[in-house]
């Protein structure tokens, strides 16, 4: 039982950044847990992805080429990953806490009898045993999890929690013919998110974002005017886009946009779910405006106003002379 195995996540031919974060995490744990650090690439043609995962502490890349893995398919991936785990007995298996992993990680952990925790943002090794930290009760507490009696542990890692590794390395590369198993779902096609219509959340330095606190669709239009008057781009949280009150291109968060270039983010009536925070918690200047003083958005905000977003908006319009 040794070593760290990382499953590479890729989509439409491109490695996902979260894999580099998992490699970064493995780099920090390698000394305590022991190597080697191995990355598994499952694809119809894995060769073009090998260079991208040959970074940091990676000692070895295993490629598995299968025609039924042209796109991610959970039952195929399960068969391959379980075969590799059974052969290598890694003490730690890492993958991103992603939509793909949701349908894969539980089957692998149950099938191989691995210790299992998800959405983990801290990993420690104590007396050779893995201890994972994640959040609970909507981020209000942290939870330490251990895995008594388990010689291997599978963790899915929260996006942005571990520094990505990008320094080039020269791992050995080997091809493996792994896993029986057959696909039980069939890819039909991709649908890209609707065109943004000129809305640029990723490129905007100043975002004013609204959430459930807006209350009613009739209140939404005034925030478009307010954002314009302040020189900000209007963003929103998921429920606002789900209701069709604002287009999806304005949604900040895991299933929407990353506020990549933002320097000032004003969150009005947004409680701050993990999924929303994924899109904005890195922003240097976050202002949270919320009625609930316990809303988790306040824990990441530089400035906070406990109050009614509609009242604050009215006052903003008044003081800025916005009609």
């Amino acid at each position: 039982m040794s070593g760290i195995l990382i499953l590479a996540e890729h989509r439409r031919g491109t490695l996902r950044d979260a894999t580099l974060e998992a490699i970064g995490a493995a780099g920090t744990l390698k000394a305590a847990l022991g190597g080697p650090v191995t990355v598994l690439v499952i694809a119809a043609d894995p060769a073009p992805l090998v260079a991208a995962v040959s970074v940091g502490a990676v000692d070895e890349v295993i490629t598995v080429a299968r025609p039924d893995a042209a796109t991610y398919e959970p039952h195929v991936y399960e068969a391959v990953l379980r075969a590799v785990i059974a052969q290598r007995s890694p003490s730690l298996v890492l993958m991103p806490h992603s939509v793909d992993s949701f349908s894969l990680a539980p089957a692998v952990a149950i099938g191989e009898g691995l210790g299992f925790a998800t959405d983990v943002f801290g990993v420690a090794v104590e007396d050779g045993q893995v201890v994972a930290t994640r959040a609970g009760y909507n981020e209000k507490v942290f939870v330490e999890i251990d895995f008594p009696g388990r010689s291997g542990v599978l963790l899915t890692l929260r996006g942005g929690a571990f520094a990505p590794e990008t320094a080039a390395a020269s791992p050995t590369v080997s091809a493996l013919d792994a896993g029986a198993g057959a696909a039980r779902s069939k890819h039909l096609d991709w649908r890209d998110p609707p065109a943004s219509g000129g809305i640029d959340i990723p490129g905007s330095p100043f975002i004013l974002s609204i959430g459930r606190g807006v209350g009613d669709e009739a209140n939404v239009a005034q925030f478009l005017e307010l954002a314009e008057g302040l020189g900000a781009t209007l963003g929103c949280s998921r429920p606002i886009a789900d209701n069709g009150w604002l287009p999806k291109a304005r949604q900040v968060g895991q299933s929407g946009q990353l506020a990549a270039k933002c320097n000032l983010y004003i969150a009005m009536g947004i409680s701050g779910s993990v999924q929303h925070q994924w899109g904005m918690k890195h922003v240097e200047n976050i202002v949270a405006i919320n009625k609930d003083p316990e809303a988790s958005i306040f824990t990441i905000a530089r400035y906070g106003i406990v109050g009614d977003m509609l009242e604050i908006a009215e006052e903003l319009r008044k003081q800025k002379g916005i009609q």
Binding site: A109, I110, G113, L114, G115, F116, A117, V131, G136, K140, V141, F142, V143, E144, I145, D146, F147, P148, R150, I286, A288, F298, T299, A301, R302, Y303, G304, I305, V306, G307, E311, I312, E315, L316, Q319
Partner: peptide
């Protein structure tokens, strides 16, 4: 089970500056 909760704790988190006052003062 495949895991066990060892400990729950309330994290120490820096709280930002809370802007107090009337809405008018807060907005200023």
């Amino acid at each position: 089970a495949l895991s066990r909760v060892r400990r729950v704790f309330v994290p120490e988190r820096g709280r930002g500056e809370i802007i107090a006052g009337t809405p008018s003062q807060q907005v200023a």
